[in-house]
Write a protein that binds this DNA or RNA. Structure first.
Lengths: 209, 209
DNA sequence: TCCCTATCTGAACGGTGTCAACATCCATCT
DNA sequence: AGATGGATGTTGACACCGTTCAGATAGGGA
């Protein structure tokens, strides 16, 4: 981001291309959408020739995976923070869900890329170092909300169920079919909370009153 | 035109290209995956020149939308049938969910295409003629399962929540991260049912208190 | 009959991912 | 120091893609 530097017009070869490429890809993704995210465009944006990226990524796919990886780290961080800053542990699950949805809403193209690459490998990313993992956080929050930590099977099922449900909502919440319902609920946020409540993940206690 | 009678070896121009194109696209999709689904490949498969499709669809997108539309009709049918053939109305929701998941499992590329095109238009397809609509079926099943038909807002929220949750599962259930859990559950089917149960859609969740 | 229109073809344009051959520069070893 | 080698970047090419446009073809209506 400091390309305006006074001196240092251009490092010898380039400096740190793979990094620059990932950042360029992310910039294009946010600014011009996924359709504009071609390898050549990324190289152009980074100021190198179309073939240069092949010295750092074997594929276009591999570059996109690197971008997606950053996304997973970011969303994992958002989840961890949401959970930590949630006062009542019983409400941590809801806080996580909301943070997740906000990330998806604020980075739609990146979010989509993350799951597209995951689906192509039929695998979620190595969820990092355990404790920062999104799934681990959800599982912890489930236990805090009253799930039985000894019934491993049920716990895993509940974790996966929560993740799937929120992911489905994240993908569909921008469909304009839901605009009327959103309006009736009094806005985007209320809509999301309403759906989350129906997932049963928003409060550890029973349904509203 | 009628002197050929039953032979019909080869229509003059082509016969019904738009139909043939949609079918060719579907064939390629299932056989070679989404990556191989180029307009040119579809034309090739249908035995026409690369420019021919443009007399029937203004875009590649429009062709894909036609393919997706067929998919939505098929899944809507599957849902309707699952609901109808479900004895206990309280279990209709679960039956719908399972039918939906089976469709997604059996037509992964098509299912993905359906949501990809929906997302690009930020809209689900015109869900047909009301009663055959998937959402309408879910809503009906929810009422049958004990939801209050008079609280429209809650009913809509529950409907959307169910749809989103099952969609999320449909998208993720092939991630190989879940293989161990699936194995522990004793197979694919048990896994799906387990998650559905956690969604709360698998058993009537009447207004107990 | 003749023409009109819908349909299909062929060739072309700019764009894409990818590769092989070549150029460049840094680091390192004598 | 100077030569060398390996990492990095460039050029040019290939095949494929979506799309367009001018022309060929053929069926149906006047």
């Amino acid at each position: 981001m400091r390309e305006t530097g006074s001196a240092q017009v251009r490092p010898y070869h380039h400096g740190d291309l793979s990094r620059a490429l990932v950042e360029a890809a992310r910039r294009i993704l946010e600014a011009e959408g996924p359709a504009a995210l071609s390898l050549r465009a990324v190289a152009r944006e980074a100021g190198v020739s179309p073939a240069a990226p092949y010295h750092h990524f074997k594929d276009k796919t591999e570059l996109l995976e690197a971008v997606a990886h950053e996304g997973w780290e970011a969303i994992g961080q958002a989840i961890t923070e949401a959970r930590r800053s949630s006062a009542d542990p019983g409400e941590a699950l809801g806080a996580i869900g909301l943070a997740y949805l906000h990330f998806a809403r604020d980075n739609p193209a990146l979010y989509r890329l993350m799951y597209d690459t995951s689906r192509d490998r039929t695998s979620m990313p190595e969820h990092g170092k355990e404790e920062d993992s999104g799934l681990a956080n959800v599982q912890g929050a489930l236990i805090a909300a009253g799930a039985d930590p000894n019934d491993d099977l049920e716990l895993q099922l509940a974790t996966v169920a929560s993740w799937c449900a929120v992911h489905g909502l994240a993908e569909m919440c921008n469909f304009k079919d839901f605009e009327p319902l959103k309006a009736a609920m009094g806005g985007d946020e209320a809509f999301l909370r309403g759906i989350l409540r129906h997932f049963g993940t928003f409060q550890a206690r029973g349904p509203k009153h």
